[in-house]
Design a protein around this nucleic acid. Structure first.
Length: 440
RNA sequence: CGGGGUAUAGCGCAGCCUGGUAGCGCGUCUGCUUUGGGAGCAGAAGGUCGCAGGUUCAAAUCCUGCUGCCCCGACCA
């Protein structure tokens, strides 16, 4: 992609409303545009990152055995009256009327709707287990949206719903999603720690929040320091192994870890002082088991081997892709800008032409650009007529993992400079070597 | 929802107290010179001063109401 043909409205100065680093950087890097309190447009650069985040989420959901569908954003109030939540949910739910004065709502979550879909088709234990998910926009009319995408009112959520014939089955479904979450966040470069959590309005009695440690996190958290060194299961982990899944979950829940709501100061105090980690964190996901809370009132019943119909056991599992963008930035940034992990970077490579209009640098950049494009490597070619310093600043700000600096100085020796944004390291190599290094 | 702020050019701000031609920096546009860490010179464009009332000869400025947005707290993927 040529920058001259792209839409990258970067800001040199920080908009005054942005308090935390991620919000500031997302605005400055031209990733998002606020349209109302807690409501944002994703600009091209932001959308690229969101797409990469969603791709990872999808791959790991699918790997764990979940099946994707897509439910609407607008729901009928009647569905929510069945579960009793139409009254219970309160002002966070955006309620609207259609032209026939029917009560509708913009979905804050989808337990009711997925239960309705499930009960319409599934009757037998033979069709279980089942885990259905979608990635869809949600609206929660937060009293106080803040920190940009971190706490918006409209946000993208991956929500999965598991259906099992009994508690043991539901437990395995919970464990699989638990492991999928560990892998999902790890692939984005994030170290997430599962913590015992409140269940809130979703209900149920078993729940973990996946927390990414960051100084600007909204949650106060307490955990055992050893979690920082735990190894995340590999791609070859067997999601069908009941014992295997349980063992992983047991390991990841064996040490103390809790958010402030569930914090047990006495238990925490029993840890060796050097193992106590008291920090702030960002909640990037949450898993719940809530049994028959929705299936019983909504009559989502399945017949067991004995022919008796019973309410299906359910769990729900959320990840906030739009929140992951700021969460990743909070962890990976410096004074100059964002430092994207490769897996979620909007572009993998930035080519900086340090003397635009000079025939040798122009030609070298064109060759690099087409070679990388031919290999399908996401490349942003900074071909604007700007001075080198300005291009460096832009590239650092938007955080592209690799920069190829093409200037007359290096070209005189047949070299370009390959710079790693993550640690600032750089080396002089031939264009061919640079391409080889980048897999092209 | 309680408390506190704020609204002037795309962004950051001054002007308001003490009413009288709307300003600065950055960015944008044109030209020339420049080109390895946000260039220099010269010129130019760009604002119903959030909205609605009121006071006044005259309102960005004073008064009233409304709205948007931000921050702190209580609540949340």
């Amino acid at each position: 992609m040529r920058l001259s043909r792209y839409f990258l409205p970067i800001l040199r100065e920080t908009p005054k409303e942005a308090e935390i680093a991620s919000h500031r950087l997302m605005l400055r890097a031209g990733m998002i545009r606020q349209e109302a309190a807690g409501i944002y447009a994703l600009l091209p650069l932001g959308l690229r990152v969101l797409d990469k985040v969603c791709r990872i989420v999808r791959e790991e959901q699918n790997r764990s055995g979940a099946v994707e569908l897509l439910m609407p954003t607008i729901q009928s109030a009647d569905l929510w009256r069945e579960s009793g939540r139409y009254e219970a949910y309160g002002k966070e739910m955006l309620r609207i009327k259609d032209r026939h004065e029917r009560d509708m709502l913009y979905g804050p979550t989808n337990e009711e709707m997925i239960t309705e879909i499930f009960r319409a088709y599934v009757r037998s234990y033979k069709d279980l287990p089942l885990n259905l998910y979608h990635i869809q926009w949600k609206f929660r009319d937060e009293v106080r949206p803040r920190f940009g995408l971190m706490r918006g009112r409209e946000f993208l959520m991956k929500d999965a719903y598991s259906f099992d014939v009994d508690l043991a089955g539901a437990r395995h479904a919970y464990n699989r999603m638990f492991v999928a979450y560990l892998r999902t966040f790890a692939r984005m470069g994030l170290r997430s720690i599962p913590m015992v959590a409140e269940t809130g309005p979703i209900g149920g009695n078993l729940s973990h929040e996946f927390i990414v440690l960051a100084d600007t996190g909204e949650s106060e958290v307490f955990c055992h320091r050893d979690y920082l060194d735990f190894e995340v299961p590999g791609a070859d982990v067997d999601f069908d192994s009941i014992a295997g899944m349980q063992a992983i979950v047991d390991k990841w829940t064996g040490l103390y870890a809790a958010t402030a709501d569930k914090h047990d100061a006495a238990a925490f105090a029993e840890l060796a002082p050097e193992k106590r980690l008291s920090a702030r964190g960002i909640e990037v996901g949450q898993v719940f088991y809530f049994g028959t809370k929705y299936s019983a009132p909504m009559k989502a019943l399945v017949a067991g081997p004995d022919g008796v119909e019973r309410p299906v056991h359910m769990g729900s599992y959320g990840i906030g892709p739009t929140r992951l963008l700021p969460a990743i930035i909070e962890v990976f940034h410096d004074e100059a800008g964002i430092k994207w992990p490769d897996a979620v970077a909007p572009f993998t490579v930035a080519i900086l032409n340090l003397k635009q209009g000079a025939s040798d640098t122009d030609a070298a950049c064109e060759r690099l650009h087409s070679a990388l494009a031919a290999k399908g490597i996401d490349t942003l070619y900074h071909d604007l007529d700007e001075r080198p310093g300005s291009k460096f600043a832009t590239a650092d700000l938007i955080g592209i993992p690799w920069q190829i600096l093409v200037g007359p100085r290096g070209l005189a020796e047949g070299k370009v400079e390959l710079k790693r944004r993550f640690d600032g390291s750089r080396e002089l190599v031939s264009p061919a070597e640079a391409l080889a290094r980048l897999g092209a």
